[in-house]
Simulated assay, not measured.
Amino acid sequence: MLNDFGRLGRAWCEADEEGTDRKTLIRRLMDDQYSRPVRIVAFNTAEGWSRDVTKDIADELRRCIAEYDEVPRSVQEFVEAALRC
């Protein structure tokens, strides 16, 4: 995940191998573990591919937002920006 750290710039956040599935990523985003997510890229090194899944994740977040009482501002901004592009 590419995260915007403001004045410090943008950087790719590392994740442990067990925490990189879609369900865990959605949970971590909703738990506000990323301050300003910008882009999400999926990698499959075994098959030799990578792809930008930013819009896919944003769309899934948009659908599940109704299930949460409180949605972090970072998620709201990420969804709005991703779906605008």
Score class of each variant (00 low, 15 high):
1 M>A: 13
1 M>V: 10
1 M>D: 09
3 N>M: 03
3 N>F: 04
4 D>A: 11
6 G>H: 11
6 G>E: 08
7 R>H: 09
7 R>I: 01
7 R>F: 13
8 L>N: 15
10 R>N: 13
11 A>S: 14
11 A>M: 13
13 C>V: 14
13 C>I: 13
13 C>N: 14
14 E>I: 01
14 E>G: 14
15 A>T: 15
15 A>S: 11
15 A>P: 09
15 A>Q: 09
16 D>G: 05
16 D>K: 04
17 E>D: 12
17 E>A: 11
17 E>C: 08
19 G>Y: 06
20 T>D: 05
20 T>M: 12
21 D>L: 02
21 D>H: 04
21 D>T: 11
21 D>M: 02
23 K>G: 10
24 T>Y: 05
24 T>N: 07
26 I>P: 07
29 L>S: 10
30 M>C: 10
32 D>Y: 03
32 D>L: 05
33 Q>E: 11
34 Y>F: 12
35 S>N: 09
37 P>E: 00
38 V>W: 03
38 V>S: 13
39 R>C: 08
39 R>V: 05
40 I>K: 05
41 V>K: 10
41 V>C: 01
42 A>M: 05
43 F>Y: 15
43 F>M: 06
44 N>G: 09
44 N>D: 15
44 N>S: 13
44 N>A: 10
45 T>I: 05
45 T>M: 07
45 T>L: 06
45 T>H: 14
47 E>R: 12
47 E>G: 13
47 E>K: 15
48 G>M: 08
48 G>S: 11
49 W>P: 11
49 W>C: 11
49 W>I: 09
49 W>G: 07
50 S>F: 10
50 S>T: 08
50 S>L: 08
50 S>M: 08
52 D>S: 01
52 D>L: 01
55 K>S: 12
55 K>P: 07
56 D>V: 01
56 D>C: 03
56 D>M: 02
57 I>E: 02
58 A>P: 10
58 A>M: 02
58 A>T: 00
59 D>Y: 05
59 D>F: 04
59 D>K: 06
60 E>S: 02
61 L>W: 03
61 L>M: 05
63 R>S: 10
63 R>N: 09
64 C>G: 00
65 I>L: 08
65 I>A: 07
65 I>E: 02
65 I>D: 08
65 I>Y: 00
66 A>T: 03
66 A>I: 05
67 E>A: 12
67 E>Y: 06
68 Y>I: 01
69 D>V: 08
69 D>R: 10
70 E>V: 15
71 V>T: 14
73 R>I: 07
73 R>P: 00
73 R>T: 04
73 R>L: 06
74 S>Q: 01
75 V>M: 04
75 V>S: 03
76 Q>Y: 10
76 Q>I: 15
76 Q>D: 13
76 Q>G: 11
77 E>H: 11
78 F>C: 01
78 F>N: 04
79 V>I: 09
79 V>K: 04
79 V>R: 04
82 A>Q: 06
82 A>D: 06
82 A>H: 02
82 A>S: 11
84 R>L: 01
84 R>P: 05
84 R>Q: 15
84 R>D: 14
85 C>R: 01
